[in-house]
């Protein structure tokens, strides 16, 4: 059943205890993602964007608010149920790649497929297809330590996509890459988006954010701006505005 929103979060809050001090990382955030959208969340360090991403992916629990994923409320799920949901519905890409060091690229990619019960043969086939598609098909048997940053991030991307997730969450995916690799990864994300993948990306870099259809800006735990590319007019003007927001 097609839902209006793939993801619908309302009134999300997250408070941490830091010693005796209570820190409000999120102070009431509403966010809805349409299917097939490419959304970037940007903001300075400490604005709560990564916290928001972690809540939406079930890696952390909100202090308050609701999260609905494909029409189902998920914020109250147990950790085990979140894990099962995550392996089927959500793909994660991280800034530091977070690949498993002593598994080959192929082993890393097929792991989530094995988790959902895909046969080894089918998982391997799907994995090789993804690696070929991402241009690193010849690196299937290589361990992460012997891959460049860009190659590692592609492996991470393949791992995130192997179960054809409903939603792809990317936390600073280019933060640890050189500019050329960063461009390549962004181009891949664009291609995925054009293929219908719903993507939510977090970045502090305006130039990265400008690749998305929609840019949400956060500061101090709140959304302060929500701009869609079709409404923004000139892309260079958008970029300038984003850069101003960045500082």
């Amino acid at each position: 059943m097609q839902h209006e929103f793939i993801l619908d979060a309302r009134g999300l809050t997250r408070t941490y205890a830091s010693g005796d001090v209570q820190v409000q990382a999120l102070r009431g955030v509403d966010l809805a993602l349409e299917p097939g959208s490419f959304t970037a969340i940007m903001g300075p360090s400490g604005c709560g964007k990564s916290t928001l991403l972690h809540l939406l992916g079930g890696l952390d629990r909100p202090t308050g608010g609701e999260i609905h994923l494909t029409g189902r409320r998920v914020d109250g799920l147990s950790e085990a149920k979140w894990s099962v949901l995550r392996r089927r519905e959500i793909g994660f890409v991280f800034q530091f790649f977070n690949l498993i060091g002593n598994l080959t690229a192929a082993d890393n990619v097929e792991l989530p497929a094995l988790l959902v019960g895909t046969s080894h043969g089918e998982a391997r086939r799907r994995c090789q297809g993804l690696l070929d598609e991402l241009g690193i098909g010849d690196k299937a048997g290589t361990i992460p330590a012997r891959l460049s940053g860009g190659q590692q991030q592609r492996v991470a991307l393949a791992r995130a996509l192997v179960n054809r997730p409903t939603l792809l969450l990317a936390d600073e995916p280019t933060g640890n890459l050189d500019s050329e690799s960063a461009r390549d990864v962004l181009a891949l994300l664009q291609r995925l988006h054009e293929g219908g993948q719903t993507i939510l990306l977090v970045t502090h870099d305006a130039r990265v954010a400008s690749n998305a259809d929609r840019v949400i800006t956060m500061r101090d735990g709140l959304i302060i701006d929500d701009t869609r590319l079709s409404e923004s007019g000139d892309s260079s003007e958008l970029l300038s505005r984003l850069i101003r927001l960045e500082v």
Binding site: G57, L59, E79, A80, S83, V84, R86, R87, R88, F92, F94, N98, L99, I100, G101, L111, P112, L115, V116, R159
Partner: peptide, 16 residues
Amino acid sequence: MRDYGIYRAIGLTPGQ
């Protein structure tokens, strides 16, 4: 610890 975080992120349950 980091590896276990990754396992959880890609979908291993706490029991797993």
